[in-house]
Simulated assay, not measured.
Amino acid sequence: MTVKDLAYAPTLDADQHPTLYHYCSTSTFLSIIQRKCLWLSDVNTMNDFGEVHWAYDRFIEAANAVLDQVGRDFVELVDEVISTSRLRLLPMLCAFSTDGDVLSQWRAYADDGSGVAIGFDAKKVGTLSIRIAPIEYSREKQVEHFRTWLLAAHEVHTDVPEKEKKKFLFEMGTFFSMDMAFYKNPAFSEEKEVRILRALDARVNDQGQWTLTDNGGSGERVSKKKLPVHFRAARNGGVVSYIELPLSGLGAEAITEIVVGPKSSNSGNEISMALNAAGFRNVRISAVHCHI
């Protein structure tokens, strides 16, 4: 069993959910199709301000449940490794939904219903140099995943040669800390969220300053290249880090549908013209059924 085998790594069934919808304002939609990229932003800026801590709390629940089986020393060791990994790796995320007409999504992400939901081909998105997975909302399943993972990790760790334990623990902590980004509070289950994730290296340089670096990936040829890290101002006056993930390698049919928001003044013709001008083909334009 390898470190990757121990990772939760939920998988998206693209046959069951062939379209992934990204809710956004009209201006963001135009930026995406014209620049042919998606913004992946710091996990700490997501809509659920407690989500960074939610998964960790479920880990603690699971750890307490298996404490007698794996021992306090192992749990504390794993806890330390996870904490170190979360300092050294910063998950950058972009959110989608498997549903193109969700009232809360329109209100929160699509300019209160005046924007659109961009429907991407799920299989094509899955080829990008990212990690993609549906969100697990069930608290019981989250705890059970962590419980099973801890038991398996303890068994493997016991058999790892002493000189390789440090490397094993570091790799394990890296995957484990990334897995935590795919757990959310069940209060958000209506969103039916699917996330794409790419991790940046966070380091302190010789001058004692924090730096963020993208090291590239191993997926689709364009998106796997090392990407520059950008920063933008947040509404609350903060600074948000993000990367622009290129979509140009996915071809002219990466977008399959545009759902026009319930408060949008667009008839669909303008959107169709913008898509064609940007080089996207065979995109279906549809209207929503919910009302705001």
Rank of each mutant, 00 (worst) to 15 (best):
A181S: 14
K124N: 08
G208E: 11
V66T: 04
F74K: 08
K226M: 11
D13C: 10
V160G: 07
K166M: 05
A187W: 06
L169Y: 00
P161L: 06
L89T: 14
S286Y: 11
I135Y: 10
W54V: 01
M1G: 12
K123W: 03
I32R: 10
E76N: 14
Q207M: 08
D48N: 09
W210V: 15
L30D: 13
V259G: 02
V70M: 02
V143L: 04
L200F: 08
H22F: 09
D206A: 10
M273P: 03
L150H: 06
D57E: 15
T174S: 08
H291R: 04
A234L: 13
F74C: 14
F231N: 15
S286V: 15
S286G: 11
E162M: 13
V143R: 03
L67H: 06
S223N: 04
R131A: 06
L250T: 00
V288L: 01
D201H: 12
T45G: 08
S138I: 08
Y56A: 01
G251I: 04
H17R: 05
C94E: 00
R88K: 15
M180C: 07
E257K: 09
D68C: 13
E144P: 00
E257M: 04
I196A: 05
L103N: 04
D99L: 12
E220N: 10
I258D: 15
A187V: 07
T98E: 06
G249P: 09
N236G: 15
D112Y: 09
L197V: 02
L197E: 02
C37E: 10
Y8L: 10
V239H: 09
I271W: 00
D73W: 07
F29P: 02
P134R: 05
I135D: 06
Q209V: 12
F120D: 05
N282V: 08
K163E: 13
S241G: 07
D179V: 00
E136D: 01
V43W: 08
A110T: 01
A63Y: 01
D13Y: 09
K163L: 11
S104F: 02
N185I: 05
E253F: 04
R88A: 13
G237D: 00
K225Y: 09
V78L: 00
V3E: 11
G217M: 01
S104K: 05
K123E: 05
R88P: 00
N44Y: 13
N64Q: 14
H154I: 00
E80I: 04
L38T: 03
D15M: 08
I285R: 01
V288I: 04
R221E: 14
T127L: 03
D121I: 03
A14T: 13
E220S: 11
L67C: 10
L93E: 06
D15H: 07
D111K: 06
P10H: 11
A252N: 13
S218A: 08
S129M: 07
L247Y: 10
M172R: 02
A122T: 02
G261F: 02
V102K: 00
R232C: 06
A252K: 15
